[in-house]
Design a protein around this nucleic acid. Structure first.
Lengths: 204, 204, 204, 204
DNA sequence: TATGAATGAGGATTCATTCAT
DNA sequence: GATGAATGAATCCTCATTCAT
């Protein structure tokens, strides 16, 4: 994996509808499995089987196993970007409360479906430069898209990126704590309250 | 064959100096490699070679490859606990500023040497229940030991665990952002200032 | 790692001609080698090589090394059953002499090609419960199919299973003694005569 | 195992009491384990541990693992021989009933403690010429010692070896059937009766 | 395009045997 | 004689990748 001495193999970027569907199926099923089970615990065979396809076909559409993850990641980032754009489209400019609630809800929601990918990527981050690069791009795009909205909506757009990033991280910490209750009996209501209060004072 | 007739392989917990040294060498080299390269990118042979030993001896001291990681993790947690206890021993009771600075410095410092392990564990977390359990214990201990100090030193010990956890997470976010600057040009001074201010208002 | 998340590996039960041939080749070569050299003295690599295949393909068709032996054994039992049924089809009902001669010849013949498997199994019997179970099924089937014929053909069908089993064992003792003359100079003709006389008085 | 290209290594045949005890302990525990678990399922370490000794010492007294089995086997044969001699010492000459009962009881008894060794040896027989040779010697001695008694006690000593061997085999078949009831619901009383009757008519 | 059989290098683990102490 | 740590070849099995059909 860590070696990137891959001779360039022509990989299909298909235009036929059937092909596109096949490719997407692999992407969808593949990323889903990788995230649920962990990159190293899923075989290309597993992916093909789960997608209802044959072993070999995977390599028509993707250079190798890693390619599936990388491209899925990319799609993910794009989808996220569009999700954000759409979601925040209706937020009234200057209405911070509105922006804030939207952000909080959006991240909570997003977290539920996508958090695992972050953790999985952390683990892969150090072992593969290509993954590290893509991961960075992913985050950059995520932060940037929200910061962009923040700049538009907020009255205090200085240090937008820093503040946005911090806000996101803190909200994610909260989500994480709720979903992975390492310490039992944590008072989640209290934590939510505190989180909201922190974010508000940070972004206002 | 005949797994059923195989009693659980006894793993040496040696008391002899020679043995202890060997075991420690494996632990040290092994965890170092795993963290640098990633668990799945290091073979037991790599570890043995790097420790200047032969393949087989690894299994004299450890049940399997995972065992090395798990035990290294455990040692880590203990070292951390002792580090915290020692570090905070001199903090004046009731002196919040003192407590806070110690915490901030401690985590910054700690993070520099140990954050890789966290990321590696994140990636392994979902694929292996045993690792998940040990990771949880690790964090529980960390949070609890700091919360314990907090209770002793602070005037407002309510929700100590929640607040401590949040504070640690937020400081970690900051450390993480500094060490792995996904987005370039982030104003680290600004982020540090904001982080400190958040933590202060959270813990006071 | 993460055994728990590993669904049971599906093993191909192929219907394509190519596949069936490959599988049979492995079975044939594998059981042959195991019986000639002994289960523990044959590696899966040996089997693959001898079958003109690569290591990996073996595990496409068989769960593990033991699976090869177990399935070969099963095939053996079925072949034996059909052999018996066919062989005894023409025996005249009530004609004991006819039945007896058929039995004696059949076992003598059968023994020549299959007794190695029995010995190999004896050795494996105590070390592996799965092998023990399959071996038992094998024998059960063998005894039962001959007993069934005995009941049909004989005038004294009481204790058919016991008598059949004893007869078979005694004939096998004879075969064994002939093929593996531990003590040289044994008078085989005498032993054959005595064996026949014992069986006759037992079954009549 | 199957290779016998063993350079001659001097192996201690100790005369000191302490040494003899150690050697016997290895022999005793080693053969016991090998027979209970199967030769390939017992490691030299298991044997050393079970004997309360260290790994290395085994190789002071025995050439290799196989040597333990072979020598144990030899001792076994001798013990058996002495057991037989002693047991039959008091049998009245010419009293066939007495001889027969002694034989039947003796084998029944012997079977209980030693049958496993036979099965284990069957499995090893083909994979190693040295084992095959020793096994043959073992059986030869066993059969011969009983035949010798038979000759002394019986009025019809012709074909003593053949008859003795057959008798022993048949009694063993019975023992085997009782201890390994492959087919359930076998009428053991009936089988015992038949076995006795067969043996009587064979030996008289 | 699609299939799935085949490849084979790689990796975890075992264990008979040796050797420094 | 004893110990038990150390060796390393051997073995089972996996899985990314290729290829004949």
């Amino acid at each position: 994996m860590a070696k990137s001495t891959k001779r360039d193999k022509p990989v299909n970027k298909p235009k036929q509808k059937r092909s596109i569907e096949t490719r997407n199926k692999i992407l969808e099923v593949g990323s889903m499995l990788m995230l649920k089970e962990g990159y190293h615990n899923v075989t290309t065979d597993d992916i093909a089987k789960a997608a209802g396809l044959s072993t070999g076909i995977v390599y028509h559409y993707f250079k190798d196993k890693k390619d599936i993850l990388l491209i899925a990641l990319d799609q993910h980032a794009n989808a996220l970007y569009e999700g954000i754009t759409e979601k925040f489209a209706t937020v009234t400019e200057g209405n911070f409360e509105d922006f804030f609630n939207t952000l909080f809800d959006f991240l909570l929601d997003y977290h539920k479906q996508a958090w695992v990918i972050h953790e999985e990527l952390e683990g892969l981050y150090h072992s593969d430069p290509e993954i590290a690069a893509t991961t960075n791009k992913y985050w950059e795009k995520t932060y940037a898209s929200i910061a962009e909205i923040y700049v538009q909506k907020s009255a205090k757009p200085e240090h937008a990126l820093e503040k946005t990033k911090m806000a996101i991280d803190i909200i994610e910490d909260f989500c994480h704590a709720c979903m992975n209750p390492i310490v039992d009996h944590l008072d989640q209501d209290f934590m939510r309250q505190e989180t909201i209060s922190i974010i508000k004072s940070l972004l206002t």
